[in-house]
């Protein structure tokens, strides 16, 4: 059935308003868009790693989650959802649960690329039937914008500050999506918020309804950490895709497919410019940083194009 934003928006919300996430934050958009991919009659059991999302959506005694929800710690969303999913199979087998449940885990880049990486890898390898959604905002935002392995090179964060000698983060962003693909799981997708959310929605549907492990890496900007105007969230996401900084693609049973190709590939400055964390790169003496950044983007983009042929 063709995607109709209006129809999708008329479904009952499974992630309610009134949560305490910042205006202009990508994480709640990611959650709402992924949960919208669920058939209304299907139930969900949701796990979240510790982070902004968990702390701001479930401050006792309030919750924004319309489905059953568990938070236990920062580094274990993979193992936790694996436990939930195994319990589901056990209880279903014994006739104690009748309905259909979908198991979904959410984590930021801290809980996914870094501290929760082992737990995620273990759960993917064991083949639990679940979706892991990483809302990647490229730093440990909940603790105050510290660098993560997902932080882009040169970004100014509170533990990779741009100083007189060190020009922000020294290392390139870890390519977690590639690492997840190497687990040979049935479905992996990379996406962000674009236009009418068709791309995200279609990927979320596949992720939720493909048996076995599925992984979605969603670029989800953070206005505090990236230092952009809150109303510019969608603009930044589009620039991330149009500069090919964040390629939109999926890997289904090992088959790579590009899901968005910009009509005109924009220069990386377009994406970097509106973000305060990259401000120092625009000093005349730091032109080399922009060039180095562009080189890395081009390298990754070429790699994706080759694989998607």
């Amino acid at each position: 059935m063709a995607y109709q934003l209006k129809e999708e928006m008329s479904k009952p919300e499974r992630f309610s308003s009134g949560h305490r996430m910042c205006a202009g934050c990508g994480a709640p958009l990611a959650v709402r868009a992924v949960l919208r991919a669920l058939e209304p009659e299907d139930k969900a059991a949701i796990v979240s790693a510790t982070g902004c999302l968990q702390a701001s959506t479930f401050p006792y005694p309030y919750t924004a989650w319309e489905d059953s929800f568990l938070h236990s710690a920062f580094e274990n969303a993979g193992a936790s959802i694996g436990g939930v999913e195994t319990a589901y199979r056990a209880l279903k087998k014994r006739g104690k649960v009748k309905g259909n449940y979908k198991c979904i885990a959410f984590g930021g880049d801290g809980g996914t690329y870094d501290i929760g990486f082992q737990s995620l890898s273990g759960a993917l390898e064991r083949g639990h039937d679940f979706v892991y959604v990483c809302y990647d905002n490229e730093a440990y935002m909940n603790t105050g914008i510290q660098r993560s392995s997902s932080t882009s090179r040169f970004a100014d964060t509170s533990t990779s500050p741009a100083g007189k000698v060190v020009p922000g983060k020294l290392q390139n962003k870890k390519n977690l999506t590639d690492v997840v693909i190497a687990h040979n799981i049935p479905y992996v997708a990379q996406t962000t918020f674009m236009g009418n959310f068709r791309d995200l929605h279609q990927k979320a549907r596949k992720a939720v309804y493909t048996p076995g492990p599925a992984f979605m890496n969603i670029l989800a900007p953070c206005p505090r950490g990236w230092r952009y105007e809150t109303q510019d969230l969608m603009k930044i996401c589009k620039l991330a895709a149009d500069t090919c900084f964040w390629p939109m693609f999926e890997v289904e049973e090992g088959k790579w497919r590009l899901t968005y190709e910009p009509k005109k590939k924009l220069a990386i400055e377009e994406y970097l410019k509106p973000q305060g964390r990259f401000k120092h790169m625009f000093k005349p003496e730091n032109q080399w940083m922009i060039e180095a950044f562009q080189t890395e983007v081009d390298r990754k983009w070429q790699d994706i194009l080759t694989r998607c042929q």
């Binding site: 796990v47 568990l70 694996g82 195994t86 319990a87 589901y88 104690k96």
Partner: peptide, 8 residues
Amino acid sequence: IGAQAAGA
């Protein structure tokens, strides 16, 4: 913890 929380 996940399993027991889920009802197992």
